[in-house]
Design a protein around this nucleic acid. Structure first.
Length: 297
DNA sequence: ACGCCTACCTGCTTGC
DNA sequence: TGCAAGCAGGTAGGCG
């Protein structure tokens, strides 16, 4: 399930392989994979473009093209990129294919058809212009958690503007970009914070631990080339972070810190894993509604 | 305006 | 053994 570390890994591995390549033809068998401009214009406007760079913003792959073009790919949950020699047979889950002039195909394979691709323009400042050609495509996204200017001070500033509980907040891409279900659970486990904890109730020390936990878990996951759970695989194969998760997917298994069984609750239709001993919820926040939620799991 | 919920998808797991 | 319901979740869009 690609989140920031997985998309970053794909970008880093794809970049040296395709920079300088020319897109000769584009094929797809599922029109809805094309998000922008239209399925008709997509292939036509991509033909003849050169790939200048591959980068990541939030959970998007951002491929800079010649002629002010930007190809933005969202692999979402089950999307994969593969680079194969032209003519290689692929299965029915490949829905989009970029045929490169050098005799290779870049394939987007996605079992669940959630992945999307769009061709956008960039302005002089390098901003990607969204569908209306004025607003930044990423205007609604929060800061990149691993950027140098994402400091503890900056984190505190945006955190203190938010209400609500920590788990849904971490998943909110307009709060901080790139965190998904796996690393939200991992960051909260590391920071010893309960997923239902009200963001407004954090003490300065809690804020610091959460900030450090988010950065540390994402950094470690990138070093391990992401977590290969379900369908995620990068161009050079599986990642390794799935072997180092402390909370996500460990329902009933002992907490690596205290040995007590890992709990799982459903929060906003997301499986949420935590240690109820290490990640305590202050008594004042154990409202009847929260009690019911915790008891139902 | 914000937070919460559902639809989109299909393969795998679970339970009868 | 077979079949169907349930589950997985990133994100857009809708609702209250």
């Amino acid at each position: 399930m690609p989140e920031l570390p997985e998309v970053e890994t794909i970008a880093r591995e794809l970049r040296p392989l395709v920079v300088g390549a020319l897109i000769r033809e584009v094929w797809f068998d599922w029109p809805r994979v094309v998000k922008h401009p239209t399925p008709d214009r997509f292939s036509e406007e991509l033909r003849g473009r050169e790939i200048l760079d591959v980068a990541r913003r939030a959970k998007w792959l951002v491929i800079t093209l010649s002629g002010d073009g930007v190809l933005a790919l969202q692999v979402k949950m089950t999307g994969q990129l593969h680079l194969v020699p032209a003519g290689t047979e692929h299965d029915r889950h490949v829905h989009l294919r970029f045929e490169l002039a050098d005799g290779r195909w870049l394939l987007l394979r996605d079992v669940r058809k959630f992945a999307r691709a769009g061709l956008y323009r960039r302005d002089e400042a390098g901003r990607v212009l969204g569908a209306d050609e004025v607003a930044d495509l990423f205007a609604e996204h929060g800061p990149e958690p691993l950027d140098d200017d994402f400091t503890l001070r900056a984190f505190r500033r945006i955190l203190r503007r938010r209400k609500g509980r920590l788990k849904p907040l971490l998943l909110d891409q307009s709060f901080v970009a790139g965190i998904g279900n796996i690393y939200a659970d991992e960051a909260l486990w590391r920071a010893r914070l309960h997923p239902l904890r009200a963001a407004a109730s954090l003490h300065p020390d809690d804020e610091r631990r959460l900030y450090q936990a988010v950065r540390a878990v994402l950094t470690e996951a990138i070093e391990r080339r992401g977590s290969s759970i379900d369908d995620y695989i990068s161009l050079e194969g599986e990642g390794g972070m799935q072997h180092y998760l402390n909370a996500y997917g460990r329902t009933g298994k002992p907490c690596p810190r205290c040995g007590r069984p890992t709990r799982r609750i459903v929060l906003g239709a997301r499986g949420t894993h935590f240690c109820s001993w290490c990640q305590r919820l202050p008594a004042a926040q154990r409202t009847p509604q929260v009690q019911r939620l915790l008891a139902s799991a």
